[in-house]
Design a protein around this nucleic acid. Structure first.
Lengths: 127, 127
DNA sequence: CGGTATCCTGTCCGATACTG
DNA sequence: CAGTATCGGACAGGATACCG
């Protein structure tokens, strides 16, 4: 066997699918949607209300992508007016832990990073 | 005090800095660079070699951003030819754990997600 | 070696208008 | 309510050329 490190999950290799998957996860809205759906299933409009600043287009688009990836399910309840519920699949649920870890890191180190940015801005301003 | 949930680390609020920080972290190359520097300090060209497909421009740009954010340090060794070493700061190091968790999730669920995508592609192809 | 500067193309994404 | 469709500006990011 000519098994190199590229074979399995090596994100440093160009062809590796983990890259594509990491890209998706890294997506701004994906993180927020998965987070929002973590507690319980939500409707389209509930999601839109919870996630400030997301446009209808991006919400739809991201939901479709998540559905394609098997991370959420979309349930249409045929009534008037129409009702659509989104909820995490098992795979989607399993993503919550690593994402929460990231969120916690962001919250914890936010001040530190902002200070560093400010310090750098001062330096450049002073030439 | 009129402290709302928006005040602290609530990524769902538009103004919250955690969003900006999560955006940075979510960046394609950031994850790979921090991962690569995890083991030991590396030179510019070493990083470029390790991270397949990154352009010089993006490597430089991402390194600058990471430096501004206080996650890595840049050390210039004045000799001929010039040598520059990048290494993680303490804050940068602390980011490794959550990122590794994400990488591991990607590796573990890669197959699952790819299957879901394939299944979806079949459905749409069949009309 | 480790960059910077410039050009240029693709894509992201918000705004808007319309629909079952 | 929960979308789809379309347009257009901003911007990410590759290719290329040049520099200390």
């Amino acid at each position: 066997m000519v098994t190199t490190t590229e074979q399995r999950g090596n994100p440093y290799a160009q062809g590796c699918p983990t890259r594509r998957i990491l890209d998706r996860i890294g997506d701004k809205w994906t993180v927020l949607i998965v987070g929002a759906l973590g507690e319980k299933a939500l409707r389209f409009s509930e999601l839109k209300r919870r996630i400030e600043g997301i446009s209808q287009k991006m919400l739809t688009q991201t939901l479709r992508t998540l559905e394609e990836d098997g991370l959420i399910t979309r349930t249409l309840i045929a009534q008037v007016p129409v009702k659509v519920e989104y909820q995490l699949t098992a795979a989607g649920q399993s993503l919550r832990a690593p994402l929460r870890a990231l969120e916690e890191w962001a919250i914890e180190h936010m001040g530190e990073v902002l200070d560093a940015r400010a310090a750098h801005a001062d330096l450049t301003a002073a030439h």
